[in-house]
Amino acid sequence: MLNSSQWAEMSSGSENCNFTDIDRLAWKVQLGISIPTFILGLVLNSLALSVFCCFWRKQTKTSVYMINLALADVLLLLSLPPKLYYSITRVPGLLCPFIQAPYFVNTYTSIFIIVCITVDRYICIRHPFEGRANQSPKWAVLICCFIWAAAWICSSPIYVFHRKESIKCFHNLSEQTWSVPFIVSVEIFGFLIPLAVMVFCSAQTIWILWNCKTHNKGDVEESGSLRVIIINLVVFLVCFTPVHLGIFLQCLVKQQVIVGCRMKQSISLFLQVSMTCANINCCLDAIFYYFAAKEFRKKTHLRRVAEVCPVFNPCAMRWDCQQWESAACQDTDTATPDTAGTVP
């Protein structure tokens, strides 16, 4: 039998559950990961923006996607210092939406542009003639504009449902923001659908290239193109799956489905750390997309780095399938056999 004090402690679990030590530990982890991510990400994405905007000889669908992806990553990285500072500093609740929204908007903008690049690559390989005939950047511009607009519109609940009292941002979202319909929409449209598209397009692309390499008796395991596609998919899964799992679990906490104090503390720590780890994708975008383009390396002084550094060398994608050689998309993020020569 439980005595009265034990029963009172169990019945008021959430009120007596203290998150001070958890938040302090999470902030130290965030600081250790965010500082190198911020510096490296800004360098790589700023370099990518300068190359694609100033030196790319002709704007294509791929260059439009890459410019927008780099811009979203830069804006996300610039939102990290305010995120770190205001997550430990109490400010008026009305100010928090203007700090929180840019972070979430640029995160999901980055996700959807990555999906667009993956779909574009798949179309170019699966339907090379149609892909080559539809390389006008106009559609890419419209799609990117739609993504940016949709991301900002979908962030409106953060502005509408905000706390009025003084709070720490990113820790005290309103109960309406954690409502089941809103979180389910975020999980389905912000992650599960993009993930399904990524898995389908990447699997189809890998299957086509595998058959091409096998038919030509090439070494599949040594194929740079296959490695980039596989690594890109793995990075997407590793970066964005934990944070959306954390959002789902935190929603269960807010809906009082999970009531144990120890479990609540673990979920809070997991969500904060997974959000920080997801930001590493900003650096990996630059490595696995921008350095994979032969045209990018031709327009910069990084060719020797790419030759010497084994991190960048596998990203030099070369298509050995004869059909892809004869009718490839121009200036894609994978390879440009018609316009770019072999990198020495």
Rank of each mutant, 00 (worst) to 15 (best):
M10A: 12
S11N: 14
S11K: 11
E15W: 09
A26V: 02
A26S: 08
W27D: 05
W27H: 05
K28Q: 13
L40S: 04
G41E: 04
G41Y: 02
V43Q: 06
L44P: 00
N45W: 05
A48K: 03
A48Y: 01
L49H: 10
F55T: 15
R57V: 14
K58N: 09
T62V: 09
Y65C: 07
L69N: 10
A72H: 05
K83A: 12
Y86A: 11
S87N: 03
I88T: 12
V91W: 00
G93I: 06
A101Y: 06
T109P: 02
F112W: 02
I113R: 02
T118R: 14
D120Y: 02
F129P: 03
F129D: 15
A133M: 07
A133D: 08
Q135M: 14
L142P: 01
C145S: 04
C145N: 04
W148S: 01
A149C: 03
A149V: 00
W152A: 01
W152Q: 01
W152G: 01
Y159V: 08
Y159R: 04
F161V: 05
N172W: 03
W178G: 13
I183M: 02
V186I: 10
I188V: 15
G190T: 07
F191W: 09
L192F: 04
P194K: 06
C201T: 15
A203K: 13
Q204H: 05
T205K: 09
W207G: 09
K213Q: 15
G218F: 01
V220T: 11
E221N: 07
E222R: 15
S225P: 00
V228W: 00
I230R: 15
I231A: 10
I231G: 04
L233G: 12
V235M: 10
F236V: 07
C239W: 00
C239K: 02
H244A: 08
Q250D: 13
C251F: 03
V253E: 05
Q255E: 13
Q255P: 02
Q256L: 07
V257I: 12
M263T: 15
S266W: 04
S266R: 11
S268V: 05
L269Q: 12
S274K: 05
S274G: 06
N279D: 13
I280A: 10
C282D: 11
F291W: 09
A292L: 05
A293T: 14
E295P: 04
F296I: 10
T300C: 03
H301D: 14
H301W: 07
E307M: 10
C309R: 05
N313H: 08
A316V: 11
R318H: 09
D320Q: 11
D320A: 11
Q322M: 12
Q323H: 12
E325L: 14
E325Q: 14
A327R: 09
D331F: 07
T336L: 07
P337F: 01
V343I: 15
